[in-house]
Every structure is written in structure tokens, then in C-alpha cells.
Amino acid sequence: MISVLVVDDQDLVRAGFVALLGFVPGIHVAGEAANGVDAVQKALELRPDVILMDIRLPELDGIRATERILAESGPDKPSVLMLTVFDLDEYVYTALRAGASGFLLKDSPTAMLIEGIQAVARGDMLFGPTITRRLVEAFTHSPPEQADPSPELACLTDRELQVLRLVAKGNGNAHIATELRVSEATVKTHLNRVMSKLRISSRAQAVVIAYETGLVRPRG
């Protein structure tokens, strides 16, 4: 059962998400919050698996709330799926850097929302089509792919760099395990070490760093 905390300052929107998710098998709404400060308190109290987090919140915006939640949650961190009516670039980058695992527009289809919750709950990433297009367009202008690791990645072993590169290219753990001829558990161990060394808390943050440092580039 996936426990979810719903965070939105609009009562009707929040109630709509709560009602919708109440009919989805395998998902349980653990609680709800109407502002960023309450979101932090509820997240630390209820320990949900996934947080649906609106970006524009009173008292403390969703991005800063996400940063605080992930910083204070210890090793058992929730996955944060950002929801917004906006798709501006600055929101995408700041949300991912804050540790969000996914980013969807509020007008996304219901099936995509449910898929997003399930995806981030199991440690994957989820982005709506518009967000994905914007990310690829922006990353095309990032540094050229490097043969040697960036100084920022010098703390990683060769195997950890391999795993990071494959993650950044959109591969899941099962595919990476097959590619490197290791177990999925080993892949998870390497990825956890990557995130620990780079002081990040999500797979999405790892992807951003891989592109920003030139470890990988999108084709085309």
C-alpha cells in the first residue's frame, strides 16, 4: 500500500485529489496539508511514501518545503511528485534540484497522475510530456559529453560513473543490471553510494547532475 500526503492550498483541488485517490487500489491517503509549513510537519509526522506537492504554497513554497522534508526525514525519505499549473523552466530545475522525483501539470490525465505516484514510490522518475521536452531542449545546451569525469564527479568510482551515466540515459535498474552483468541489488547499492557522495536524495537529481557536468548529453 502506497501512502500519500496531498499538499495544495486550494481546498477544492486538494479535496479532489483526496477523493480521486481514495478509489485507487493500492493507494492510501495518509493526510493533507494546505501550506508548506503544515506540509513539513505532516510529512515528518505521517512518514508518507509519496507527497503530492503543489509548488505555489503560502507560508513556505513547495520547493523549500521539499528541501526541508528531505533534509529532516533521515534515511527513509518520501518521494515528492510536484504538481503545478505552470511549466516554466525555472520551476522544473529548482524542483529537481530540491529533490523532487517527478513533475506533472495539474491538468495531466488521471492515469498519468496515478502512474506518477506508483513510479516515484518505487524509486523511478516521472515527467509529463511538456516537461520532458523542455528538459531535453535545455540539456542540449549543456557542456559536451566528457570522456573524463568532471571534478564534481571525481569522488565516484568508475563503476559508479557507469551507473550514473546509464541512469541519466533513462535506464531502469533491471536494464542497468543486465548491461553491467550484475544484480539489481548491486545497482541499487551503487546508485545509493552515488547519491550519498554527491549529497543528493533522488534519482532525478542524479540525472540533472549527469547532464550539467557533461557526463551525458541527449542525442540530437
Rank of each mutant, 00 (worst) to 15 (best):
S3Y: 01
S3V: 06
V6D: 05
V7R: 05
D8W: 05
F17D: 02
F17R: 02
L20Y: 00
G22N: 12
G22M: 09
H28M: 04
A30I: 08
A30F: 00
A34G: 13
A34K: 15
N35M: 00
G36P: 10
G36Q: 09
V37I: 15
V37Q: 11
A39E: 13
R47K: 06
V50C: 08
I51R: 00
I51H: 05
D54M: 02
D54E: 10
P58S: 11
L60H: 11
G62A: 09
R64L: 12
T66Y: 02
G74I: 13
G74D: 07
K77E: 14
L81W: 09
M82G: 08
D89M: 08
V92W: 14
A100W: 15
A100L: 11
S101L: 04
G102H: 02
G102K: 00
G102I: 10
T110S: 00
T110W: 05
A111M: 11
I114V: 14
E115N: 06
Q118H: 07
V120S: 15
R122K: 08
G123M: 02
M125W: 00
L126W: 06
G128W: 14
P129S: 05
T130K: 14
T130W: 10
I131K: 02
R134D: 15
V136I: 15
V136W: 08
E137T: 12
F139L: 03
H141W: 08
P143T: 14
P144R: 08
D148I: 12
P151D: 03
A154T: 11
A154Y: 07
C155F: 07
C155E: 11
C155H: 08
L156I: 06
R159P: 03
R159K: 09
L161N: 08
L161C: 05
L161K: 07
V163Q: 10
L166C: 08
V167F: 09
A168M: 06
G170D: 11
A174W: 03
A174G: 06
A177V: 11
E179I: 13
L180E: 13
L180A: 02
L180H: 10
V187P: 13
K188C: 09
T189C: 07
L191H: 13
N192W: 01
R193V: 10
S196L: 13
L198I: 13
I200M: 09
S201A: 14
A204T: 15
A204Q: 13
A206E: 04
V207R: 05
V208C: 02
A210Y: 01
T213M: 13
G214Q: 03
P218E: 03
